[in-house]
Design a binder for these strands. Sequence first.
DNA 1: CCACTGTCTTGACATCTGTCGAAACAGACA
DNA 2: TGTCTGTTTCGACAGATGTCAAGACAGTGG
Lengths: 125, 125
Amino acid sequence: MSKQAASLTLTDVTAEAFCCQPLAQHRVPAETAAVLAPAFKALGDPVRLQLMSMIASADNGEACVCDLTPAFNLSGPTISHHLKSLREAGLVDSERRGTWVYYRARPAVLRQLAALLTVEPVTVS
Amino acid sequence: MSKQAASLTLTDVTAEAFCCQPLAQHRVPAETAAVLAPAFKALGDPVRLQLMSMIASADNGEACVCDLTPAFNLSGPTISHHLKSLREAGLVDSERRGTWVYYRARPAVLRQLAALLTVEPVTVS
DNA sequence: CCACTGTCTTGACATCTGTCGAAACAGACA
DNA sequence: TGTCTGTTTCGACAGATGTCAAGACAGTGG
């Protein structure tokens, strides 16, 4: 069978191909909702949505905190707090290299969320 | 002409084609983030994510509150509250027909969110 | 008009969230 | 070692959120 062997720790968004049937085609089961809702929640703040975009669209695929922080009128700790939210939601990874910390997007998770929201092009009658 | 007349209240997600460049291709501007974040926020609760799915995937495109409520171990007012959140986020519409109230998804908004999260298939080197 | 059913609003409550300043931690570099 | 810079954690606080019970509102049908 597939990756469903035993009671796998399915409760991890970062597992590749965790889901997703489009939300508009099949009812999202409670378990799936519990796993994916936190990711949407993380994107549900304007600051985090921008942070996510800045990270995902960065030239080399990663962004330094030192580049992210000045883009907002917010304190360092606050930005750090938001980045932690994104990290805990599985949307980004962080890595320290010397003095600076770099954040990198996890495209697989973004793809899952996008797949979930996918709607058929247009209802042609 | 289109709906863009003058300084249109662009701060409305429900405006067709309000956006969206994929988040991973261009930085999401603050204004766009402010408009779209509430939609993600609305999907950021497991109950609402399931409600959204139940509505969007309903047979005739609409779901009655009387069908939604029994699917959860939550009081009527609580479900109503969540449905209000979805409505205010522009994700669903509601209509009363006689005794029952029906909710219907707004596919255009879902499409915008999906477009925003779209990531290129796989980074082929 | 009155009662009954379905849905929403109100008021209350505990919890969570976004924000900051202060302090702690991690490396670089003298 | 000590100091400086960049980042995170801690502690605190106001405001938002999820939940419920009680009551208000909307339609149906006597």
